[in-house]
Design a protein around this nucleic acid. Sequence first.
RNA 1: GUCCCCGUCGUCUAGCCCGGUCCAGGACACCGGCCUUUCACGCCGGCAACAGGGGUUCAAAUCCCCUCGGGGACGCCA
Length: 494
Amino acid sequence: MSEEVIVRFPPSPTGYLHIGGARTAIFNWLFARKHGGKFILRIEDTDAERSTEESIQGIIDGLTWLGLDWDEGPYFQSQFAHEHKQVAENLLKEGKAYKCFCTREELEAKRKKALKEKRDIKYDGTCRNLSPEQIEEKEAAGMPYVVRFKVPERQGKIGYDDKVLGRIEKDYREIEDFVIMRSNGRPLYLLCNVVDDIRDRITHIIRGQDHMSNTIRQILLYEALGARPPVFAHMPLTLDLQKRKISKRTHGEVVSVQWYREMGFIPWALVNFLVLLGWNPGTDQEIFSREELIQAFSLERINKSNSVFNYRKGDPKFFTDPKAISINAHYLRTMPIEEIAHMIKDDFKKEGIWLDAYEGEKKKWFLSTLDLIRSRFHTLKDFARQGRAYFADDFEFDPKALKKNVLKRPELKELLPALASELEAVESWNLETTEDAVRKFAESRALKAGIIINGMRTVLTGQLKGPGIFDVMVAIGKDRVIARLRNTPNLFET
RNA sequence: GUCCCCGUCGUCUAGCCCGGUCCAGGACACCGGCCUUUCACGCCGGCAACAGGGGUUCAAAUCCCCUCGGGGACGCCA
């Protein structure tokens, strides 16, 4: 028996990769990696009007950024259009499908009527039993038709064993004769998807529960095509706080993978957060390395119930789900600092504070400074923003900090420059000598050290909070500390 | 309306299959405290849930039934 596992991620390129799609990709990817199988990327661009080159690239970039690698593809569904059509025509020839001449208007009217009468709105089978003569007549008259799949007339139920949901069954009589080919001759998703999955020898289909009602119909297609259906696993959906399905359209950038990149997320942190939405390892572990996650993952531990993406629009404190931020912050302060350095390089360049020396003679200083400040940051962006004063002289002062620590203490105007002069005498600039000098200075002026220390923090970094002041002094360096302290009087201007 | 799925702290969830170890565990968030002349980290502590109702049982979050609630699908979209 073959243990081969082949899964796929089949996005339709009608928008950027969003976190729901990313989560589906993650689950498939993990399953493939866990079983040494293949992960195929297939772009389902059948709906030509809505597919764009831009979103194809966006999806590929998003997956790449997340670190999800695929073994085959990207394939493009549109390239197999001929095959899809051939299959539809074969089904027609074999009597497993039929031509339906009902017009959209007729169908729409019937649907409305059924809804009004509170009946099931499935297709009534008007064209299912047309005689060859009738068909010929309608065709001769140039009437357009769609091809419908002829659901077998069988008693009882058809079903499958869902890896997440368990046994799912449906009565044959409740399945309508669904359309598999449009009147313009282009086959529909339901068919294309099955044909592609058969060709790609897909063994497991892991997708959202919103596809559940397609599954039974697709199993019918597998059967009609003489293929064995794959194993299905329908994952729970991700909803918003109002319990609506999340979508790019209604939620905007907060659900786009690209946005997390722009906001300074560590890609793996996003993967780690997303995988916990609807899955858990059965232990208390929540932070996983790539290897650990692959090892721990299983379809059996996917939840049945939908999860809520805890995001409040306009929340001043959390720009996305607080747990996502917390996981990101965790990685930020625990990852090897070299990796952090690598990830913020481009951002530093963009902010104009990158120095090549950070990878050369100043590397040690650079890494230890990043390490010093990272514990209070939430995103990679914070290094270049809140941490700017460590890497550049043109940094901004937090107005609140300035007011509280500096402006309210006019004596600092004189004190800090005086301290600067004292510091000039410090020979070897380190934690002990700087602390010693500062404390002696405070003592000599009969001042509480806290006033000096808090004032210095703001004058040196522009911030209200930060690492211990002597660490800051060492990180920023003697010359710059003295210069910034001497600049204090200017802060009282304006 | 019809069909399908689901329902444990505010959120993510453990426990449910195989009833007692659960006056329900963890994480995030929130609130205290310790540490720190700041803040964060770290550590300690707190708040907070079995949707409701009936059964079955010595015993139910766990099994059965009903109700309610939420979601999905019902396209010549994917």
